[in-house]
Structure formats: structure tokens, C-alpha cells
Simulated scan of single mutants.
Amino acid sequence: MLAWVFGFLVKYITFFNVFSYLTVRAIFALLTALVISLVMGQKVIDWLQKLQIGQVIRNDGPESHLSKKGTPTMGGTLILASISISVLLWADLKNPYVWIALFVLIGYGLVGFADDYLKVVRKNTAGLIARWKYFWQSVIALIVAFGLYVYGKDTAVTALVVPFFKDVVPQLGVFFILLTYFVVVGAGNAVNLTDGLDGLAIMPTVFVAGGFALVSWATGNVNFADYLHIPYIRYSGELMIVCMAIVGAGLGFLWFNTYPAMVFMGDVGSLALGGVLGIIAVLLRQEFLLLVMGGIFVIETLSVILQVGSFKLRGKRIFRMAPIHHHYELKGWPEPRVIVRFWIISLMLVLIGLVTLKMR
């Protein structure tokens, strides 16, 4: 919205031309989301406490988590509001990719909200029935996948970018729909699984979003895309605004979510953040890059799959508890040590992912 306003004002005051630069608007998007989160954070926490919307703790979880019972949850509503307001203020709203990202963000947020609402308000520990949870995630992912396929069939929009090979960019055809579905749904649930310790999920999300901000800037610039041997995608540059808004909102939320957490994001936040990272990866044609940069989310998800599979097939557990962050807790690692070490690994993976863009 402000992009349009400043575009109009530049006719009269040339100073406003500075806001035509994508990087400037991206920085302001980060700052706007950050300020909204910081200013509204305590108010949201007080409101959640007043409504007695407290975290439900698993009885079979680590004993150290029992003290977290009752901590306000559904703080992801603050993250979603901060991102949405910032994006609507600073992005070019004529860009369809911006609306696609917001559609997934809010859509997955609503699914997570329904799950959280049933858990903490209706006191239904099971939350939203699993099949309905995945059904609505699937509906949202398939709507976007089919729409993108129809719009960009046989163009860069539906091509697969393969790391390390600059001349290998195969067209996916109808398999693009299937890939998009698995990336969006998978990313949403992977971040959801990771959100088990104070600040554990939000900082890797910030790192990955920051990495994708750079990638979107390059993908939307003909010269940089050619230099890096990645497809130039017309609308992708504006996703930098979305990514930087995620970074700002995430850092603002971390102010209150850092150990010991004053608030948890809940499924309303984790599903939404995972889903939007997934669709951003699809829009940028960097699904493989998401696997690398979001490696922490992949590891957490694999640990659950391996644990369940091993128990069903062999009757034995691989880890003391899954997801894997609980395994290290039960080994005696203090919660802050697990969190910070996972952050360090996440940062390293994002940097490695960015390096692969040049190694072609």
C-alpha cells in the first residue's frame, strides 16, 4: 500500500523515490514487523493470560517441561499479524506472488488456530482430528499448486532447479503439483514438530527466511539470476518483502519466546511459518535449497519417522524420545544448550545452502 502511495508522491517530492528500491522497502518491512511484535507482544501475552489460553504439556514428555504448563500459547497470532500488516504496507500489492504467500500463511494459520483452539480452549488434548488437519492443509496446498501449474506450465515457474548443475533444469509437468503439495505440507508439519523448546523453531525460521530473502532478490533480477545460473522469475523479487517481514516478526516474537518463554507460538504460528517457507521455496524454484537450509526441520521430522518406524518394525526405539531435541534433553543437556546448538547448526546449513547457488 505504501509502495503505491510513495509512487504517487514522488511526482511532487523526489525524496520518495528511495522507496521504489526493493532493498529499502525490505528493510522497512523487517523493521515494521519487528516493532509491531515488540510493541504488541506484552499486550497479546496479557490478553492470552486473561483468556486462560495456556499450553497443554504431554504427560510422557521430559519432566522439566511440566513447569511450562499454563504458559500462554497461540502467540503465533502475533507473528501472523506482524507479517501480514508489514507485507500489506510495504509490498507491491499488484504482485501475485505476494498474495499467494499470504494465502498460505493465513490459511495454514487458520488450520493451526483451529487445532490450538480445541486443545487449550475446549480442553481437547487431541486437538483437531488428524485427518481433518491434513485435509485442510492439503486443500490449501493443492489450490496453490494447481493454480501455479495452470499459470506457469512449461515455463521457469514449473521447472526444477537442481543444485550443482547449471544446465539441468527439467520441466516437471503435472508432477509439479505433486512436488508443491509435498513441499508445502511437509514444511508446515516439519516446523510444527520442531517447535518443542523455547525459541527452537523461530530462530531457524528467521535464518531460512533471511536466506530466501537473498535468493528472491537474485531470482527477480535478470543480471543476478544469469550470473548465478538460476531461472529468472518475473514476480519473485517481491518475495523479499515477505521474507524480511518474517525475519522481523520472528525476532520480535523471540524477545518473548526466548528461554524461559513467556509465550509459545502454538500450531497457529508453526504451521503457518512452515507453510509459507514451503511456498516461498516453490515460487523461487528452490525446493532442494529448502532441504539444505531448513536441515534442522528435516532432521527433526526424520527423527520422528525413524522412531515410529523402528518401534513398529522392531519394537525398539532409536532415540530416548522424538523429536530429537527431546533425546538430547533426556541425555542431560540443559534446554538452552540444545536450543543454541540447534541454532548454530541451522545458521551453518543456511550458509552452506547459499554457497550451493554459486557452485554450479
Rank of each mutant, 00 (worst) to 15 (best):
A91S: 13
G76A: 01
V338L: 08
I344D: 04
H325L: 05
F264E: 06
V111G: 07
S86P: 11
R58A: 13
L271T: 09
A225M: 10
W255P: 04
V111L: 02
K312P: 08
M265I: 03
F253P: 01
G41P: 00
F164S: 07
S82L: 04
F207T: 00
F175V: 14
A145L: 05
R234F: 10
G76H: 02
F165L: 13
S67L: 11
R317K: 11
V10K: 15
A130E: 15
P163V: 07
M74N: 04
L9V: 06
L254Y: 14
F319W: 12
V87Y: 07
F6I: 02
L302Y: 08
L148F: 04
N221S: 12
M321D: 02
L271M: 10
P204H: 07
I202L: 12
K316P: 00
Q137H: 14
L80T: 05
W99V: 00
M359W: 15
R58V: 10
V44S: 01
L354F: 07
I296N: 05
L9P: 03
I202E: 12
V168K: 11
G152N: 11
K11N: 14
V268G: 05
R337Q: 13
P163C: 02
D226T: 13
V87R: 02
K119G: 03
L51Q: 10
R285K: 15
L110R: 04
P231Q: 04
K69A: 15
F256R: 07
W136M: 14
T73E: 10
S86F: 11
I83Q: 05
E300R: 02
A3M: 12
K166Y: 14
K50G: 05
V308Q: 10
L349V: 01
G112D: 08
K316V: 12
E335A: 02
L200T: 08
V150L: 11
I57D: 06
V350G: 01
K358T: 14
K316T: 15
A187T: 05
V308H: 07
W99Q: 07
S37M: 00
P163F: 04
F103Q: 03
Y134H: 11
F19D: 02
L239P: 03
L89H: 06
G127F: 07
A126E: 14
G152P: 08
S67I: 14
A249N: 08
H327Y: 11
V10R: 14
G315K: 04
K123W: 09
W90T: 07
R337S: 12
I100P: 00
K331R: 11
I352V: 15
